[in-house]
Nucleic acid binder design. Structure first.
Lengths: 145, 145
DNA sequence: GTATTACCTAAACCTGACTTTAGGTCAAGC
DNA sequence: GCTTGACCTAAAGTCAGGTTTAGGTAATAC
């Protein structure tokens, strides 16, 4: 059993955030002793999961739902799986979008590199899209598809 | 020259957003005729760039800076390039993080699939991490590295 | 016995990116 | 001449995800 301060230390989070998570219902099984929160293994595991789910772009209210399902037991396995499947699909399309944006950035970096080296803006624009060098062509095409 | 309504139509944005962008200084060259905004090619191009920069996770105030540099002319080429380089690096690490989160989701999907098929939670946990099947091992390792 | 420290609460505040509201101008159509 | 619709403004509201503030309790340290 750990106090809120110890958990904050372990996870590198402010105690205010842990209290906020608790208030949002992210620790449905959290116990207290004379008012003081007692974080156990269940809560530490929950926090690890929360870190992941946040990285996966999930909102607090969906994370709460998931935690409630976990507290409910095995009957919620299918719901939990469906939530992850949905997130996975969402995440894959997010990553695809970000890769397009990244290709745009690569193109812009190359473009300004040419300008910095004294190439003329009008001449450079005339190269686009057909006369682009191989190194940048794919990025350009992905970014503008 | 286009009115705000026409531009809103073209880009699928509400006029309120265009006015907001203007107020935030995203169109430093925007002209007006008796109070009414006149969007020209410069502004349409700016909007295309804004769409990209937003996808790349840039904040309004940084986009404004970029637009101001564009209005200032070629002397700002190096600054603009530096901004894109910095964004590119940032974006690459974001994508790497998201791929880790995605691997976690893949693992969770597999895990709940096993549970749904009646496998026992304790038995399943005993497999982790060394007895995991090949298909899921890499995802697990990436997600927990 | 008092100062510090860790804990608690409710409620106000913050940021970013918009959106909504309330009120006003002006040209075109009927 | 009056209604409609497109434009304008400033200011307030919204949402998520926290953070900060103000005030209170309880154990430990000196």
């Amino acid at each position: 059993m750990y106090t809120i301060g110890q958990v904050a230390e372990m996870f590198g989070l402010p105690t205010s955030t842990l209290r906020y998570y608790d208030k949002q219902g992210l620790f449905p099984e959290l116990k207290r002793a004379s008012g003081i929160r007692q974080f156990g293994d269940t809560e530490l595991e929950a926090l690890r999961v929360i870190e992941c789910l946040k990285k996966a772009g999930m909102e607090i209210k969906d994370i709460r739902l998931f935690m409630e399902w976990c507290a409910e037991g095995p009957s919620t396995y299918p719901k939990r799986k469906a939530m992850f499947e949905e997130r996975k699909v969402h995440m894959e399309s997010e990553i695809a979008n970000m890769n397009r944006a990244l290709d745009m950035l690569k193109f812009k970096c190359w473009y300004y590199e040419q300008l910095n080296q004294g190439n003329d803006e009008a001449e450079l624009k005339a190269l686009i899209p057909d006369g682009l060098p191989e190194e940048i062509k794919e990025a350009y095409e992905n970014a503008h598809a």
